[in-house]
Simulated assay, not measured.
Amino acid sequence: MNLNELGLKHSTDKASHGHNYLDLYEELLAPFRDRGNLRIIEIGVHEGASLRVWKDFFPDAQIVGVDIKEACRAHADTSIQIEIGDQGDETFLQSLITKHPADIIVDDGSHFWSHQIDTFRLLFPQMRSGGLFVCEDLLTSRSKWVAAYGRPYTIPAATYFGRLAAQFAAEGFVYGEASDTEMRDLQQQIAWMRFGPGFVAIRKV
């Protein structure tokens, strides 16, 4: 079964009946299928559907689901671990990536701009070389979602990643001016960036 078929089987909203991410995800994730000792972190467990998709697609991977709700521990099994913690807690995120050095991170968590931006800022530099970071649901950066997901940041997550892409494409410079130090450091760790409808995928060097 391909990735979208697995998504439909497990009823994740990443599949074609929902956000329709998985056809493009298959292309992005295919190179990882032959990687040994693969570790995947997904932030946002909900009912565990996408964790089961990753388990079927990467049968030998170690999968870590992260959520704030204790009830999500019910989705743990021999290849899926559950970590309970707040995505907005930087200390928790640091402990997470220290405990579980990751090849793939999927942020499908709170969708708050601050969480989307800071999760990338904190975790991406500590991912394994060649890893892939995906931030989903960038639609919350626009339209009716702004009031619910924008506070306390004034910059939408989609705008942040767009600026990062501009820095990356311009090799650290935009409009002739050097980028800020942190964004320049992040840019230097990026192999490529790819945007899809509602998400961004960033490959680490």
Rank of each mutant, 00 (worst) to 15 (best):
L51W: 04
H75A: 08
F58V: 09
K55T: 00
R33A: 12
V53L: 06
E70V: 04
G65V: 01
F58I: 11
V53M: 02
N37M: 05
I68V: 14
G65Q: 03
V45G: 12
P59E: 01
G36E: 03
F57K: 04
P59R: 07
I40A: 11
Q62V: 01
I41F: 15
A49Y: 00
N37R: 08
V53N: 11
G65C: 07
E47G: 10
L29V: 01
W54H: 10
V64H: 10
K55E: 05
R52S: 09
V64M: 10
H46Q: 12
F58K: 14
R39W: 00
V64I: 15
D67K: 09
D56I: 00
I43W: 10
F57Q: 07
F58S: 14
A49W: 00
H75S: 06
A49T: 07
V45Q: 09
A71Q: 07
N37K: 11
L38F: 05
A30L: 14
R35L: 11
F32K: 07
E47R: 13
K55H: 02
K55G: 02
N37I: 00
H46R: 13
F58N: 13
V53I: 02
F32G: 05
K69N: 14
A30F: 12
R73E: 05
I43C: 12
K55L: 02
A71W: 03
A74K: 15
R35S: 09
N37F: 06
E70C: 05
I68L: 06
G36N: 03
D56Q: 07
A61M: 10
I40M: 14
H75Y: 15
F57R: 05
P59H: 04
I63D: 07
D34I: 04
G65A: 07
E70P: 02
S50N: 15
I41C: 14
V64F: 10
V66P: 08
E47Y: 01
I40S: 14
F32W: 01
R73K: 15
D34Y: 04
R35F: 03
A61N: 12
W54D: 03
R52N: 10
W54R: 06
D34M: 08
P31C: 05
V53Y: 01
L28I: 02
D60F: 14
D34S: 15
L29Y: 05
A49E: 14
C72L: 00
D56A: 14
L38H: 07
K69E: 14
C72M: 00
F58G: 13
G36P: 02
K69H: 12
V53S: 14
A71N: 04
K69T: 06
D34V: 06
I40P: 12
K69Y: 09
R39G: 00
F57Y: 15
I63W: 13
H46N: 13
V66T: 04
H75F: 15
H46L: 09
H46F: 04
G36K: 11
K69L: 11
V66A: 07
K55I: 01
R73G: 04
I68D: 01
V45I: 14
S50C: 11
A61V: 06
D56M: 03
V66F: 09
G48V: 10
N37W: 03
P59C: 06
I41E: 15
V66Y: 08
V45K: 03
E42K: 12
V64T: 10
P59K: 07
R39K: 05
R39H: 01
W54P: 11
W54F: 15
A49M: 03
I68Q: 05
L38W: 05
I63Y: 15
I40N: 13
